[in-house]
Design a protein around this nucleic acid. Structure first.
Length: 270
DNA sequence: ATGTCCCTGACCCAGGGA
């Protein structure tokens, strides 16, 4: 019996933040790191830097490079890497998945970057919000059939803070994209379509404030603490009991030239 | 709460995206 440690992090440009990715690999030492918003074409990804640290297995979906982009950086082999397009959008890299482990302990991890959705929470006038809602609907249809017999884990920047205490003020954010009722309902519908367990809330009660993102725009993000829990790790119901050591590495929000998201980490028994 | 940060493309700044 051993533990596989996984981390998910919206890095907001992997080239700009190569050094703090290395810091995470050195200090938190995940076996597998799932990145979102790499903003990097596959040929520009700093593969050699991570390989030096023992992360020999890299799977990329970077598209044309400027926007979005997801990646997997691993010191364990990655099998059957798959990339799926959502909402029939070409060049909109928001998903990559791979199988980790072997035999009875193998599982697939889906790494998602859900569309942010723009500012106006009205799908009739804001195409970005419409895209976000359609993306969530498509996830709900996709995931129940995506496992291929293996249990799976969903990680990533899902860009929705679904519960009251996943935001600094439920009342203030009810009409703000990321916490509107329709988004929260749709994200919960995705999760319950397979019965995934929201690992963060298995370890931290729903009544307790819990965030993974703090805006760059706050003067003192830590003092203001106006955060949102946008980054998630969900485990298949058959796997949830194998997940432990949940942490949000809030200190990384203060590293040199930080991302506005903090890494989320768990260990999985294999 | 209109603030900050990163991208691209074109040229050291504007506009889009988050």
């Amino acid at each position: 019996m051993r533990q596989v440690k996984i981390a998910t992090w919206n890095i907001n440009s992997v080239r700009m933040r190569r050094l703090i990715v290395e810091r995470l690999l050195n200090e938190a030492a995940p076996d597998v790191l799932f990145l979102q918003e790499t903003k990097c074409q596959d040929g520009q990804f700093p593969v050699a830097d991570f390989r030096k640290l023992g992360y020999d297995h890299v799977a990329l979906n970077g598209g044309r490079g400027g926007y979005h982009g997801v990646a997997i950086v691993s010191r364990l082999p990655l099998a059957d890497v798959q990339v799926r397009e959502f909402c029939e959008k070409v060049g909109d890299p928001r998903h990559i998945s791979a199988v980790i482990g072997e035999g009875n302990s193998a599982f697939r991890v889906h790494n998602f970057y859900v569309p942010a959705g723009g500012d106006e929470p009205d799908a009739t006038i804001n195409p970005k919000f419409d895209h976000k809602l359609r993306f969530l609907d498509e996830m709900k249809d996709f995931l129940p059939t995506a496992g291929g017999g293996l249990p799976d884990v969903v990680v990533g920047d899902l860009n929705v803070a679904p519960h009251e205490h996943d935001v600094w003020s439920h009342k203030a954010l009810m009409k703000i994209v990321s916490h509107t009722p329709i988004e929260c309902e749709k994200l919960e519908a995705v999760r319950s379509s397979v019965g995934y367990v929201d690992i963060a809330r298995r370890f931290v009660p729903l009544e307790e404030k819990l965030y993974s993102w703090w805006s760059y725009r706050a003067k003192d993000w830590r003092a203001a603490d106006k955060g949102r829990r946008l980054d998630h790790i969900w485990a298949h119901p058959n796997m949830a009991a194998r997940v432990s050591d949940f942490r949000i590495l809030k200190d990384a929000r203060d590293w040199d030239r930080p991302s506005d998201h903090a890494p989320v980490v768990v260990s999985i028994e294999v």
